[in-house]
């Protein structure tokens, strides 16, 4: 009894073993973020408290950055969630285990293929002279450009969905595994048909996983930088791109506005990760029974 209680709370000495890691996190993550938060409320010359930096975010450039970022993340998260769920279902019920495992491995690898190489791969296929662009032009006599452009919002959506899809597949597969065959059979023996089962049991059971997937995908896209940086540069303003410009000193903006922007994006990310956590907790509680 006593030893288990000790293990739970820990002696002061035991906490010392945790200290190096905690210090590392404080030094390279938590304290800098706190300074960032503080900086976003401080007037640069007078060192007085101010909310002016947040008011400055109302300028069209910043407002647009937030709107674009949210639109891009939201849209690719929804597309990724819906299509990813169906693909996940197809993979989950694929008869051959080897094919299933191969597809899961593929998802594992491709979801990490974000950034510059991926952006460039999309230029190769969908750029002005890309493979698919050429293919469409020669076989269907249809020019994707200028309606579509890989260097624009529509192009970014295609590139983002590339890493969103496999991420959703990976997130939803355990959820399908969690829908037990016995539930389906119970429902059937109680008189339900397939549609009634999915409507009353299957989909409600999946919903926490779908919400968790949606929010994680949203956060995943919202924080992305390298893909967008490589593809659109200054043609489209996104929150992460704006913050990046401020660090690099490429734009002559007040640094404090950048901090306010960073805190704003932290808030949005925190919200989605929080919802993700809550949803995941619920799926765990259900799968327990």
């Amino acid at each position: 009894m006593k030893s288990s209680l000790q293990r739970k709370t820990g002696h002061t000495v035991d906490w010392l073993g945790f200290a190096p890691f905690l210090l590392f996190c404080l030094a390279f993550e938590i304290v800098p973020i706190i300074f960032l938060l503080r900086g976003s409320f401080i007037e640069k010359t007078t060192h007085q408290f101010t909310i002016q930096h947040y008011l400055d975010l109302q300028r069209p450039l910043y407002i647009n950055s937030f709107i674009n970022s949210i639109k891009l993340s939201g849209l690719t998260a929804i597309i990724g969630m819906i299509i990813g769920t169906f693909i996940g279902y197809a993979i989950y019920h694929w008869p051959s285990e080897r094919v299933r495992e191969a597809l899961i491995t593929l998802s594992d690898v491709t979801t990490n293929f974000a950034g510059a190489p991926l952006a460039f791969a999309f230029v190769v296929i969908l750029g002005m002279n890309g493979v698919i662009t050429q293919f469409m032009l020669q076989y269907f006599n249809y020019d994707l450009y200028p309606k579509f452009s890989i260097y624009s919002f529509s192009g970014l959506i295609l590139a983002y969905v590339y890493f969103q899809l496999p991420l959703m597949v990976l997130l939803i597969l355990p959820a399908f595994a969690g829908i037990k065959k016995e539930w389906q059979e119970s429902a059937q023996s109680l008189g339900a048909d397939t549609l009634q089962f999915w409507w009353r049991i299957g989909i409600p059971v999946l919903i926490p996983s779908l919400i968790a997937g949606l929010t994680l995908l949203f956060a995943n896209a919202f924080g992305a930088y390298a893909t967008a940086y490589t593809l659109v540069q200054a043609k489209l303003s996104l929150v992460t791109l704006q913050i990046g410009y401020m660090i690099a000193g490429e734009v002559r903006q007040d640094q404090a506005v950048g901090m306010a922007m960073a805190i704003g994006s932290l808030f949005i990310m925190g919200l989605s990760i929080g919802i993700y956590q809550a949803a995941t907790l619920r799926t765990r509680r259900w799968s327990k029974s």
Partner: peptide
């Protein structure tokens, strides 16, 4: 939950 650009800025 922390975008890399935010971490870099901080």
């Amino acid at each position: 939950g922390i975008p890399t650009v935010v971490l870099a800025l901080a």
